[in-house]
């Protein structure tokens, strides 16, 4: 079931006018920014379906921009995100596109930072709830409702066992676990949704302990769940 919390329905607290086209858009921007893990220099948004035809009226454009600048859906800065973007030197573009068979409210977000880039496809499925459909071309689905670990690694036997053991030893319950790889033995991403906050120290330790991990991210649209 996609909606599990009372606050999925009585919430989010947000600036208007649309939960899917404004609040959801901020959250999708938040996820892209958290995966990039640095201030973006350039943001490209490709919008399909209802997003494409109504984004100006719903403020979807300012909401997406606010999201990639780390604002939350309830912040007063959301409506003036374009001004904020030009103040920090973030260039951006919005294009209408057909992204394929997705929910009508879907966007492809491409961010470019100094060191990294991110490409994700995400849908805003209603009431402010979002779902990532693809990350850097891999079919990785996640909502960002709970703390979500993205572990970039080299595909190798026993990798997941090490991750599970590490999280178990540190007292974390895994709510969801997915692994996608580009090819056998090649680059791969493991996605772990965990119950409970993951402080930076634990993440550093995880990285030090599991040699296959080349990079990691903690993603969560519920800012209260972030350390």
């Amino acid at each position: 079931m996609k909606y599990t919390s009372a606050f999925d329905i009585i919430g989010p607290v947000m600036v208007g006018p649309s939960s899917s086209h404004t609040a959801g858009a901020v959250r999708m921007g938040n996820i892209a920014r958290q995966v990039l893990a640095e201030p973006p220099l350039c943001a490209e948004f490709r919008l399909m379906g209802s997003f494409a035809t109504t984004y100006r009226g719903h403020g979807t454009d300012v909401a997406l921009l606010a999201g990639v600048m780390n604002l939350s859906p309830e912040e007063d800065g959301v409506p003036v995100a374009k001004q904020m973007a030009s103040d920090v030197g973030l260039s951006y573009s919005f294009e209408e596109d057909n992204l394929g068979y997705f929910h009508p409210n879907t966007v492809r977000i491409s961010l470019l930072g100094r060191q990294r880039q991110v490409d994700l496809v995400a849908s805003s499925i209603g009431g402010g709830k979002v779902e990532v459909q693809e990350l850097d071309g891999l079919p990785l689905k996640f909502s960002g409702d709970r703390p979500t670990l993205l572990l970039y690694h080299q595909d190798a036997p026993g990798f997941l066992a090490k991750v599970c053991r590490f999280l178990d030893v540190h007292g974390y319950n895994i709510g969801r676990l997915v692994l996608e790889r580009w090819r056998r033995g090649g680059n791969a991403v493991a996605l772990c949704e965990v119950d409970g906050k993951l402080p930076p120290g634990v993440l550093q330790e995880l990285r030090a302990e599991i040699g296959e991990v080349s990079d990691l991210r903690l993603v969560c649209t519920n800012f209260a769940e972030l350390p």
Binding site: D8, I10, G11, V15, G16, P17, S19, A23, E74, G126
Partner: peptide, 20 residues
């Protein structure tokens, strides 16, 4: 308030946030 980009609670959505 919603249409003015003011702060509301989506119940269940912003478009229907006035009723509850």
């Amino acid at each position: 308030v919603n249409a003015s980009m003011g702060r509301i609670v989506a119940t269940p959505t912003a478009g229907a946030a006035g009723i509850l």
